Amino acid sequence: MADDDAPDLEVPVGLFQDLEDLKAHVAALTAQVKALTDADPGEAPPDEEDAAVGGEKAGEEWQSPPFILLLDPPVYDDELRALIEWVEGVLVPGYLAEPSADARWCHLWFEHPVAVARLHACWLAWQELTDPATCGYIGPSVWHRDHLDPCLRELRGPNGPFAGCTKSEHRVDHRLPGLVPSAWAMGES
């Protein structure tokens, strides 16, 4: 085939830049895999700065947020403070109507461990599902359906943690077990 017969293909300049970026990522990943497979089990891993790929350091695992009831002070206090800001600033004004016998709410909800645990889980889901970068535009709908609605049904229902609370009386101890479950003791023997 002669040069005159070659098809005229226009390739966007950005495509070449994308290909070069991909080549660089593949080369970095290949080097990382080689370093990990060639390393002795007792040997220290390669320098993380040299093996960084895509903004993450090699060997660094993403860790999920811990269950709030397992945190110790001052980490628990900081997490609870942030949760209180979200509940009082977003959830209460936006989603909670006037409490009633059928839909209770305790203004001291943060003293109810069950409420703290459920609301913390709901808040973590909200943080992820209201970010279009991670969940697109359906995230808020999923959050309402799968997290908020079940959480509020459990908390505000007749058998929920606020069942013993009224506008004039706050009762936390009506649902607390006498002993902490052993699974929550975490290493205490």
Rank of each mutant, 00 (worst) to 15 (best):
D3W: 11
D5W: 11
P7D: 10
E10M: 12
V11C: 12
V11I: 15
G14W: 13
G14C: 12
L15E: 11
F16D: 12
F16K: 11
Q17W: 13
Q17G: 15
D18K: 10
D18E: 10
D18N: 07
L19Y: 11
E20Y: 12
D21H: 14
D21L: 14
V26R: 11
L29Q: 09
A31P: 03
V33W: 06
K34M: 10
A35R: 03
L36V: 01
L36G: 05
A39G: 00
P41R: 00
P41D: 09
E48G: 06
E48Q: 08
E49R: 13
A51I: 02
A52W: 07
A52V: 08
G54Y: 02
G55H: 05
E56A: 10
K57N: 03
K57Q: 01
G59S: 02
E61W: 04
E61V: 11
W62L: 09
Q63H: 08
Q63S: 10
S64T: 06
P65M: 01
P66V: 06
P66C: 05
P66F: 00
F67K: 03
F67W: 08
L71M: 13
P73M: 04
V75T: 14
Y76M: 01
Y76F: 15
Y76I: 03
E79C: 09
R81K: 14
A82R: 14
A82V: 14
L83A: 06
E85I: 12
W86A: 03
V87F: 00
E88V: 06
G89V: 01
L91I: 04
V92N: 02
G94E: 03
A97T: 10
P99S: 00
P99Q: 04
P99N: 02
P99L: 02
S100G: 15
S100W: 04
A101Y: 02
A101F: 08
D102Q: 12
D102F: 01
A103F: 08
R104A: 06
W105M: 08
W105Y: 14
H107M: 12
H107A: 11
L108S: 15
L108H: 14
W109T: 01
V114R: 06
V114C: 01
A115T: 00
V116K: 04
R118M: 04
L119H: 07
H120V: 01
A121P: 04
C122T: 02
C122Q: 03
L124Y: 00
W126H: 05
W126K: 07
L129K: 07
P132H: 07
C135P: 06
P140Q: 03
V142A: 09
H144L: 11
D146C: 10
L148T: 00
P150M: 02
L152Q: 04
L155E: 00
R156W: 04
R156Q: 15
G157S: 03
N159I: 09
G160T: 05
G160H: 03
P161K: 00
F162V: 05
A163H: 08
T166E: 09
K167T: 15
R171G: 04
R171F: 08
R171W: 08
V172I: 14
D173I: 07
D173S: 13
H174N: 12
L176K: 12
L176T: 14
G178M: 13
L179P: 06
L179E: 15
V180N: 07
P181M: 01
S182C: 08
S182G: 10
E188P: 00
E188T: 13
E188R: 14
S189P: 15
S189A: 15
